[in-house]
């Protein structure tokens, strides 16, 4: 292993040890942190590499939540069966909607995915098997260590997948689509297949995260399972850290969620305000993400900030 992987590996080992060295609060914090980091990384596969900014990844998360919940609460199936069912459900959904929806570009795609999420949420709220708008209650367990390690494993798997993508021919095709889809197509990239593959992969990780989290919280309903705010979090964390990079979304999730938690515990009322301000400042001064900021600061110092603003202002 080269030094490039030394720090991430050490970080992963440290994270893995948290259940044995940390207390209850740290575990709660860690579980949610790993959840949003895994979701941000899953979003990165499609949004970061192809540039298709999905606001409907919460749909796949929600299907993972409901797949697991329905299997366990309605059919008394074991957890892992529900997890797999939820993942299959989400991937089927991605396959089905991928073809029509991935033809849309820019804001149209973003909004179509947002609409899909809202429509699915409303649909689930009318299904008896899903407990309508009241929701479902899963069997209670106290295996927080398992949930924690499960989400950590998921985050690692998603990050490894992204690492593979970023160094593969597949990933180069996705990046070409992001940079100029028409040019990519005439150069031989099967743009439709590549986009759908990225969407399905993204849906798989999102659904698995949803399934694990559903069992952890034990109570689920349409509003929390298909929460567009959760999707916005994925986008912000991935973009903050650096979309289309391997570690950016994870770093972005860790930093933003830590800031948010620190603010929420000290000045609880103003936490949201500061969160909004951080987002605004981040977009102005580091529109290409933390990774680019670090690179730019090392290369040209504070002048990077000025140059960035100059590049995008009117």
């Amino acid at each position: 292993m080269s030094s490039r992987w030394g720090v991430p590996l050490l970080g992963a080992a440290l994270l893995g040890a948290v259940p044995w060295i940390g207390d209850e609060t740290m575990m709660q914090f860690g579980i949610y942190l790993l959840l949003v980091a895994a979701l941000a990384q899953a979003w990165n596969i499609l949004g970061g590499f192809t540039g298709y900014a999905s606001f409907g990844n919460s749909t796949f998360y929600g299907l993972g939540v409901y797949g697991t919940a329905i299997a366990m609460a309605q059919f008394d199936l074991p957890f892992w069966v529900g997890l797999v069912l939820g993942a299959i459900l989400a991937m089927l959904c991605a396959l089905l909607i991928g073809l029509p929806i991935l033809r849309l570009r820019g804001p149209y795609f973003a909004i179509a995915t947002l609409g899909l999420n809202a429509a699915l949420s409303a649909l689930v709220a009318n299904l008896d098997i899903a407990g309508r708008n009241i929701g479902l209650i899963l069997p209670l367990t106290r295996h927080d260590v398992l949930f924690y390690e499960g989400l950590l494993a998921l985050l690692l798997a998603a990050t490894l997948a992204v690492a593979w993508i970023s160094s593969s021919r597949f990933g180069m095709g996705l990046i070409a689509i992001r940079e100029d889809e028409d040019a990519a197509a005439v150069m031989g990239v099967d743009t439709t297949l590549y986009k759908i593959a990225a969407l399905v992969l993204s849906s798989l990780f999102s659904a698995l995260a949803g399934g694990i989290y559903a069992y952890y919280v034990t109570f689920i309903d349409p509003a929390s399972a298909f929460d567009p705010k959760l999707n916005v979090q994925m986008v912000i964390m991935a973009v903050f850290g650096g979309p289309g990079t391997v570690l950016g979304p994870v770093v972005g999730a860790f930093i933003l969620y830590s800031i948010y938690q620190a603010l929420a515990s000290s000045i609880s009322t103003a936490a949201a305000l500061f969160y909004g301000v951080v987002i605004i400042l981040a977009v102005i001064f580091m529109p290409k993400g933390l990774v680019d900021l670090g690179w730019g600061l090392r290369r040209m110092g504070p002048r990077y900030l000025l140059e960035t603003v100059r590049q995008y202002r009117l």
Binding site: G173, E179, D180, A183, G188, V189
Partner: peptide, 18 residues
């Protein structure tokens, strides 16, 4: 239609990869 954010070498590599 260059791939604007990629290096010149990466741009041409896309042609070779596909």
């Amino acid at each position: 239609k260059p791939f604007p954010g990629l290096s010149v070498l990466e741009n041409v590599t896309v042609g070779a990869l596909f």
